[in-house]
């Protein structure tokens, strides 16, 4: 997703002179192309994220569209008040790009995990939260970001995220995408969980479970219409996210489900703790928390048994 991000941004910046890119001293072997082509619109802000967001706000007040780039916790939690007051309160066209969604930096330890960001960013007024599911969704979100009014948080995976779509048309921030139209149960996935959710759907199909698969790339504003629609049409809904159980996609979907009449079994699949004692690769940690395709599949089968046994 990182390369989809920068390659798209470079193309956009050739046509749109409003685009600035600020980084908190990260982006080695990712951002060089932009830096070299647009040196007067690229700033390495140093290790000073609060100032980075404030400067971005100043640039945006002058009519620039400003992308700020860093690893998720540093570009969200570290400078949260600047995001709230300088960017969101003033409704500025700042695009906060967080890389390393969820457990991407698995061996780095908890300082580098992003397991609270969706919850926290979702709570800030005026801020939309977009978690692309693959490189193509990333590209589409970036393109739309130029005309999107108000501030945006875009949560990316890392390098080498697999492609889920062969081609993608009609992407729109705030509008969920259906990838499979099964009628038994629904999986709603956000961000870098999409490939695993898709794989889990394939595994379930082999076991005779027909899955409606939704990519909820925009967690805020959430696509209520799609959620209410699948609540009517399927027996169970499972949300999948590489984020803490509290406040993320699962919570956002639960909020919608709780206020609509259809009764449907609902289960959140997410990371259940943040400060764990063992580290490991992203794949290792995903399987530990049941976020690999097999784990997702198991949780779903278990949930379906509960429905059957009432």
């Amino acid at each position: 997703m990182r390369s989809a991000f920068i390659n798209t941004l470079i193309k956009l910046a050739r046509k749109d002179k409003r685009i600035f890119l600020l980084t908190g001293d990260l982006g080695f072997s990712v951002l060089e192309g932009f830096r070299d082509e647009f040196p007067d619109r690229f700033i390495n802000m140093g290790v000073a994220e609060a100032n980075m967001i404030g400067v971005a706000a100043g640039l945006a007040l002058s009519g620039k569209v400003v992308f700020v780039y860093s690893i998720v916790p540093f570009v969200t939690l570290r400078c949260l008040e600047q995001i709230r007051n300088d960017v969101c309160y003033q409704q500025l066209q700042v695009r906060i790009i967080g890389v390393g969604a969820g457990l991407s930096y698995g061996t780095s330890g908890a300082t580098h995990y992003s397991l609270e960001d969706i919850a926290v960013m979702r709570a800030i007024s005026n801020l939309s939260v977009v978690c692309p599911g693959d490189p193509l969704e990333t590209e589409m979100a970036l393109k739309e970001s130029l005309s999107y009014a108000g501030p945006l948080y875009i949560r990316l995976g890392k390098g080498h995220d697999p492609l889920v779509y062969r081609k993608l048309e009609g992407f729109k921030i705030g509008k969920a995408i259906s990838l499979r139209y099964g009628k038994d149960i629904a999986i709603i996935s956000t961000g870098n969980m999409l490939p695993n959710a898709n794989q889990a759907a394939s595994l379930l199909k082999k076991q005779g479970v027909d899955v409606r698969l939704i990519s909820m790339h925009t967690v805020k504003p959430i696509d209520k219409k799609t959620i209410i629609d699948i609540a009517k049409k399927t027996k169970a809904i499972f949300t999948v996210e590489e984020h803490n159980l509290i406040g993320g996609l699962g919570s956002a979907v639960a909020e919608v489900l709780a206020e609509q009449p259809a009764k449907v079994y609902f289960k959140r699949i997410a990371v259940t703790e943040t400060f764990f004692k063992t580290i490991g690769s992203q794949d290792y940690l995903r399987s530990k928390f049941g976020l690999d395709a097999n784990g997702i599949c198991k949780t779903i089968i278990k949930g379906m048994r509960k429905i059957r046994h009432g």
Binding site: I43, A50, N51, I53, G54, V55, A56, A57, G58, L59, A60, L61, S62, G63, K64, Q82, D86
Partner: peptide
């Protein structure tokens, strides 16, 4: 910081 951004622009 906001002032620096405005000055830079």
């Amino acid at each position: 910081s906001i002032g620096a951004g405005l000055a830079l622009a």
